[in-house]
Structures are given as C-alpha cells and as structure tokens.
Design a protein around this nucleic acid. Structure first.
Lengths: 222, 222
DNA sequence: GAAAAATATGAGCGATAACTCGCATTTTTC
DNA sequence: GAAAAATGCGAGTTATCGCTCATATTTTTC
C-alpha cells in the first residue's frame, strides 16, 4: 500500500511483471508490422500478448505509450548497430567517411524495415513523440560536430546549413531506398548507390579535390 | 430512376450538388488542418460543411475518399504553381537549372504547409492513395528525362540512379526545410539554402566545371 | 402545375474502441 | 504459514465511429 492506489499506471517493474511488460511491447510490435496501426487496439494487444487488458493499463496509460515503447526499443537496436560502424570515422578521409555514413544509414533502415516503415508513418501522429525528435537531433548534432572538426579540409561556410543539407539528403536516400525502392539495393546496385551518395556529399563538402585534401586557405575571416 | 438505386455513391454532380461536394471537401481540409486527422470523422465533416451526413454518403463512399479529394485538390494547386517555373529550365545551364528546381520544390511546399504536413503524414495510411505515388513518379520521370536530354554536359553513368539520388535529396530538403526547420527559410537564409542545394546537385551531376560545360567525352562504352 | 427525378436530411443501428473496477491469484514479508 | 503487498484478470461501461434508410424538400420535365 505504498503508493499503488495513486498513479495507477506504469509504476512497478520487478520480477515477472517485467515479462508482462515485455510481452506487451513485443505484441505491439508484431501487430504494427503484421496487421497495421489501426488494428493495434489495446484490447488486441493484450490478447496477442496473452495478458489481461487490466494488466496492460497497469503499465501503460494507453495505446500511445505502447507505440512509444516499441519505437524506443527499435531505436536502441539501430543505435547499437550504427554507432559501432561510425566509430572509426574520424580517421577516414572525407570521401571514405561519407561512404561509411551513407552505408550505415542504409543498414540502419534495414534493421527491421517493416517496423521502421510503420513507425515512420505513424510517429507524427503519436503525441509528437519525443523519440524521433531526439533521434534526428542526435544525427544532426553529431554531423555538425564532425563538420567542425574537419573544417580545415572542407569548404563549409555555414556548418549548420551544411549539416542540414547533408543529414536530410542522407536520411532521405536511405529511407526511400529501403522502404520505397528495394530494387536500388539489390547486390550490385547497392554499392553503386552508396558510392553515388558519398560522391555527392564529398563533392559538396570539399569541392575541388574529392579525396579530402585541403582546398582553400580559409572559408571566411569570421 | 436511371441508376440511382445502385451505385448509391458519388454519381450525380449537377447544379447545387456541386456546391455540396465543394463544401464537403473544403470542410475536410479545414478540419485536417485545424483539428487533425483523427477529428475528421464523417459526422464532423458533414457538420462543419453544413450538410447532412446522408448527403456526404451520396457523394463520397467514406472518409478516405474525402481525404483523397483534398489531396488531389492540393496537388493541383501545387502543380499549377510549379510547372510555370520549370518551363524555362531547358534553356538554363546546369547549375541555374538546379537552382530553379530547388527553389520551385521549396515553394511547392509553401503553398499550404499546414495542409501539406497533414497530408504527407496521413497519406501512407489512406488506402495507398494513388495520388502521391503519381505525384512522385511524375517528378522522378521528369527529372530523368531532363537528365538524359543533357547527358552530354553531365557525367552520369546511370540516369536512373542519378535521378533517384537527386529527386530524393531535393524533396527531402524542401520538405524538411518548410515543415521542420522554418528557421532555414527566413529571408537571407532561404537564398543560401537554395544555393547550397543547387551547388550540391550540380557538383554531383557535372563534377569538374560547376557551370555546366561538357566535362568528359564519354561516361562508358555501354 | 403535376408528376418525376434529383437532392438533402438526421435519428438511430451495429460495431468497436478505450478504459475501469471489483476480485482472483501469486509473491513477498516477517 | 499467515498477513500483506504486488500482480493479473476480463466483463462491463461509456463513447464515438461509420454508415443506412425512410422521409422531406427542391428542381426538372413535359
């Protein structure tokens, strides 16, 4: 009788209750992928999870919270897969770094394409979901940091602007290749796509010498 | 009693009934923008349109059809605004052409940003909606045609791949600038954004000389 | 201007959703 | 091993949705 009466939702998580929560999140993900967002009612989620509806509402205030939990789990998986690949990026020349980033972005979208699609489509509706915002901001900030670290080798007048252009281009390329144009990723073509994307970005950031050598003595007195 | 009994929906459109249809479409657009997709129930649409629900179902088979009608109207408005600007593109050098395209894409998204956002978010859910598919395919095909017409001046090994890369980059830039980063479009910065995008694309398509002059005698024996 | 066709209406039906609450079962505590 | 907490349950309440249909009103036809 500690504080169970109030704050009826999402409180305790010890022992088996953890299994209940996991089952609910897993069921939500399955339904989102196999039956679509509209079929993911709280009643159905509980049913698929093999859990009573009452239990669902003990841990989640509603359907949105379940979807958020699924999105966060998915994001965690992507992050793990991607961050390892981006570790060595500081030691690579510009063009190679871009190749790494584009390839990593595409692979990130391939972690669970069906789920990623549903989440990407539905996230805007789900209470503005801080999750995706965080995710994108993270990519954006990381890229900006990389840009500024390499500013000497590049020709970037406005890092914020350049980061905006690059991050959006990379994300769009990866997203649409995986979700809307699978033909672009069939073996031979996949490598070509990565190479083209990398060439575009490297050419944009370091115009004259694609290799990444320094190119002009200064970008501006500022 | 021509054929009214069967096919009860969406048949006749003469005289005042046209006004009813217009009122319904307009009401749908208003609700989508002001209250969101979820609040756009058929009952509410009819209410806002000042029309009985029965009338709604005489012209539209359901909510989806209303949303499709709104999307088609929005797309028509965009097309009118954009096609004029892209007319002179064949006479422009590569870099200038890219500038025109990027600027046109951004302006297209500015026709009615709030509505565009809702439609972009909800369209994936609405019966696969042929509308957007048509729209994007059109852009894609048009760009490919332009690419092949200019093949001599460019360095494009695979037009399909290049079109994919460019169209996605342009669309993402415009979409996110207008809908997620309005700060990028405040007067001075807007021009810079267009210029950066154009530079990236032109550099990608015609690497050595940004101006658009010919650059290599052939891309491949194929 | 009367019959017929077209158009407009809205109460209400059936379905389904989100969510509650009183109670059963399991686990922990001492 | 008994009391107490934690956890699990699901029939039932409330709300809203999409949609129909019998009927009323307007317009057209001749």
């Amino acid at each position: 009788m500690r504080r169970a009466a109030l704050q009826p939702r999402k409180i305790a998580t010890q022992r088996r209750s953890r299994a209940t929560v996991d089952a609910l999140v897993e069921a939500t993900a399955r339904i989102l992928v196999r039956e679509g967002f509209d079929k993911a009612s709280t009643n159905r989620i509980a049913e698929v999870a093999g859990v009573g509806i009452g239990s669902l509402y003990q841990y989640f205030p509603g359907k949105e919270a379940l979807v958020v939990a699924v999105a966060e789990r998915h994001q965690r998986e992507i992050m793990q897969q991607v961050q390892a690949r981006l570790a060595g990026i500081l030691d690579q020349p510009v063009h190679a770094a871009m190749r790494t980033i584009v390839a990593a972005a595409i692979d990130a979208h391939r972690v669970d394409p069906a789920l990623h699609r549903v989440l990407a489509e539905q996230i805007p509706r789900v209470g503005k979901l801080a999750g995706l915002a965080t995710f994108d901001r993270g990519n954006y900030a990381a890229f900006r940091t990389w840009l500024e670290a390499r500013r000497r080798e590049l020709r970037v007048a406005d890092p914020e602007l350049a980061a905006f252009v690059c991050v959006n281009a990379i994300e769009a390329l990866a997203h649409n290749a995986v979700l809307h144009a699978p033909k672009m990723l069939s073996d031979e073509r996949a490598a070509a796509l990565v190479e083209e994307g990398a060439r575009m970005l490297a050419g944009y950031l370091a115009p004259r010498h694609a290799g990444g050598r320094r190119v002009s003595r200064r970008t501006r007195p500022a």
